[in-house]
């Protein structure tokens, strides 16, 4: 633990020397790259990283890592952005050919709603000190957020097509549980490196 603290201290001292523009640029690049990496991990299903063909919700993990140390409106905004980016990876904007009846995807709820709400709530929780800064709290937080986002998506499906209930709910149970377990287990892998970086930046900014 001491070595991590020592590393962090040296790292902060190094960042402190940088000109402001370099710090801002690095921060933006690292934030953007980490988000892009999480988006690219979404289609991956490696053994040990998937249950019943469902993988961790990397977008949610990133939003949780971001929101946990920020104000609610920034958490919600990041959640919306991440959700829109995830939409881009899933939905096709190409107009459906053929008639309205035949199509491979007739409804497509956006991820922005679920992730936006999750980002907002996570920052709220952090601000009110409901959670402590430890691994177990992070587990629980991401677990709950994953179930919440999948439930919101299920709700959006049902709003768009009420007849799908018999298919949606069994699928939702399996998906929410698998996604919550995997996301909370893999959460720290994204959360801790990002937290170290953002904390260093915040400390440096406080001192300048």
């Amino acid at each position: 633990m001491n070595t991590i603290v020592e590393l962090q201290r040296r790292w902060e001292a190094a960042i402190y020397q940088w000109p402001v523009w370099q710090r801002v640029l690095f921060n933006a690049v690292i934030t953007g790259l980490s988000a892009a990496l999480c988006l690219m991990l979404l289609p991956v299903r490696l053994p040990g990283m998937s249950l019943l063909g469902i993988g961790p919700n990397w977008a949610l993990i990133w939003v949780a890592a971001w929101s946990i140390c920020r104000v609610p409106w920034l958490g919600a905004l990041a959640g919306c952005f991440m959700g829109l980016a995830q939409d881009a990876l899933v939905t096709s904007s190409a107009s459906p050919i053929g008639n309205m009846e035949e199509a491979l995807a007739t409804i497509a709820p956006s991820h922005a709603v679920g992730l936006g709400v999750a980002g907002f709530l996570i920052s709220q929780f952090q601000r009110r000190r409901i959670i402590e800064d430890d691994v177990v709290a992070l587990f629980l937080l991401i677990f709950a957020a994953a179930i919440l986002t999948e439930t919101i998506t299920a709700g959006l499906y049902l709003i768009q097509d009420g007849t799908l209930g018999s298919v949606i709910w069994p699928h939702h149970q399996r998906l929410a549980l698998c996604s919550a377990i995997l996301s909370s287990l893999w959460g720290p892998a994204v959360y801790f490196p990002l937290k170290l970086w953002w904390q260093a930046i915040a400390n440096v900014e406080k001192n300048t």
Partner: peptide, 26 residues
């Protein structure tokens, strides 16, 4: 197949061939 859907609700696969190999939309 190089990947699956980017979320749990859509049933998709990502294939490792694209327009360079002659794949077209549809």
């Amino acid at each position: 197949t190089i990947g699956r859907s980017a979320n749990g609700w859509w049933q998709q696969v990502v294939l490792g061939r694209g327009s360079n190999d002659g794949v077209v939309e549809g």
